[in-house]
């Protein structure tokens, strides 16, 4: 396997009247061909901005200010908008969180899927509609031909998200980026969508990046998990290693604070005190140090680098002065 996407030292700043505030601070991430990577972190940790920056969709006043992102040999951050537009959809597909705001409410869903096909591959309209029906069938929508004529409001939340996935897949992308696509859905529908994306990934050999705040959700989906905190990767490891031997104190805290179906009822959950730092008010040292129970003097002085954990899986990397040495311990 070789890296399909390789992000190095990415920084993203918000331009404010008082000067730039850093939200993503030197992210290193790689996605292999055919791999599924889960990116986990709390609101505001920069997980969505990182992925949006790759395809030139950052909101106004937010800009990628440093680093590189190589995708299939070219640096996405250096590409002009026109080239990025060609890449979006055909090479990199996107599924967003809220299908109700991402779909055009006054356009039939068939037209919306066909539009993507016509734009990306220059298909004729009848052929595109034919292909749109196939895509709807592929994402598990019953009687797809009838559904082509439906408007988004006529579909349920789960069905709308399936339509979004169909649009994301329309160009047969090599990389599918899913940004919290199941957050607004019921558990049962959420499980169906996770299964669907996994099946599609296996069938087409796509790489998938799944952004979420829910560690448990991607346990069954991701090959590898990167944990983000305040705009940096604090831990990056194969999925079993994250769950069996979480090493960074933040990863451990996140896992411990998850209620599960096996712990004792009516007990207090271990929780992480405090809140993440705001952009522009980052501590000088490790960004997690103010909330960390293991923090030492060194943690406030310098930012720990992401480094391999001795004795653990060779792909296991963590950014922590205190726990990095004990990663091999079960």
């Amino acid at each position: 396997m070789s890296a399909l996407l390789e992000i190095r030292g990415l920084t993203i700043d918000i331009e404010r009247d008082t000067g730039p505030a850093r939200v993503v601070d030197g992210i290193d991430l790689a996605v292999e061909e055919g791999e599924s990577l889960g990116i986990v972190g709390e609101s505001g940790c920069g997980k969505s901005l990182t992925m949006l920056s790759l395809v030139g969709l950052l909101p106004n006043r937010i800009r990628a200010t440093g680093g590189s992102a190589r995708f299939a040999g070219q640096d996405l951050l250096a590409l002009p908008q026109e080239a990025l537009r060609k890449l979006r959809g055909s090479q990199i597909g996107f599924i967003f969180q809220d299908p109700m705001t991402s779909l055009n409410p006054v356009m039939r869903v068939g037209e919306q899927i066909a539009e993507a096909l016509i734009h990306q591959s220059g298909m004729a309209k009848p052929a595109a509609m034919e292909r749109a029906a196939e895509l709807l069938e592929l994402v598990g929508i019953p009687s797809p031909r009838d559904r082509l004529m439906a408007y988004p409001h006529e579909l349920s939340g789960g069905m709308r998200q399936r339509v979004m996935i169909a649009i994301g897949l329309a160009g047969s992308p090599r990389l599918l980026i899913a940004d919290e696509p199941t957050t607004a859905l019921d558990v049962t529908i959420q499980a169906q969508i996770v299964d669907l994306v996994r099946d599609l990934k296996d069938r087409f050999g796509m790489s998938v990046v799944w952004i979420t705040h829910d560690l448990a959700l991607i346990a069954g989906l991701a090959d590898r998990i990167a944990v983000l905190y305040a705009g940096t990767v604090v831990e990056d490891a194969p999925v079993e290693v994250i769950f069996d031997r979480p090493t960074h104190p933040y990863t451990r805290g996140l896992l411990a604070s998850l209620p599960t179906l096996t712990d004792r009822p009516m007990t207090r959950l271990p929780s992480i005190g405090g809140t993440p730092p705001e952009p522009g008010r980052r501590p000088p040292g490790c960004p997690f140090a103010p909330r960390c129970t293991l923090a030492e003097a060194a943690c406030d002085a310098a930012v720990p680098k992401l480094a391999a954990v001795p004795g653990s899986d060779p792909r296991h990397r963590v950014a922590c002065f205190v726990t990095a040495g004990e990663g091999g311990r079960a």
């Binding site: 558990v187 049962t188 959420q190 499980a191 996770v194 829910d214 560690l215 448990a216 959700l217 346990a219 069954g220 989906l221 999925v239 079993e240 769950f243 896992l255 998850l258 599960t260 179906l261």
Partner: peptide
Amino acid sequence: SAVPSTDPRAA
């Protein structure tokens, strides 16, 4: 059965 499991092998 739809609850995501934190065990990647069971999930």
